[in-house]
Amino acid sequence: MTDHAARQLSRMFRDIASAMADARDWLTELDGAIGDADHGITMALGFEAVTAALAREDLDRMAPSALFEIAATAFLDAVGASTGPLYATAFRRAARFLRTQEPAASNTPAQAPSLAARPLAPLSTATQAGLLQAMAAGIAERGKGQRGDKTMLDAWIPAAEAAESAAGLDAASLWRAVLPAAEAGAEATRSMTAARGRAARLGERSLGHIDPGAASAVILLQAMARVLADQTDAS
């Protein structure tokens, strides 16, 4: 893949959107067991809005951080709910982190037509790892949650921890560490009773059900891996 970062990320969001569209009914079913049965609809709608918003942008002039800002706003405005603020905060944290990685010139993306200002390289492994950590931190902060609450954090926190310890490896190895961690975390929500979100009111009746937020987090991470792990250049 020779795409530069913004194109790579926009492809990643498209991949997430189509994965969520595929998983819509399954997620909605999961949510029906312990929530209000709209999680699949919400996730599909949110990422569809992100894709449509990014399609309106000129990616060749866009810094990755700006792309995440657009994704955050589009997702939040389309969705609301609890997923909206959680992922919007994740994306804003990702944007903030990416800004620290970008050369100063690309911080004014819209007015930077010169070739020199384009962030041409795909995201490095270290940057990808940092991205995951920033996203998980954003979700934890906005949701005021922690591991074991039976939420999406049960997938995100192990994913971020795995990313941290694999940050020095190549991209494929990073994702080989991240995905199983996230999957195991999501699977573990089956044996948890919910402490947050609507499912919290169910008490022990939430036992035995995988948390739909954790399930969709795995789908999202798998889509990220499909696009980001597949790169020859990881400078």
Binding site: T42, D77, G80, P85
Partner: peptide
């Protein structure tokens, strides 16, 4: 908001 979903901040 959307069906059964809180409205966004805007």
């Amino acid at each position: 908001g959307n069906i059964f979903s809180a409205p966004p901040p805007a």
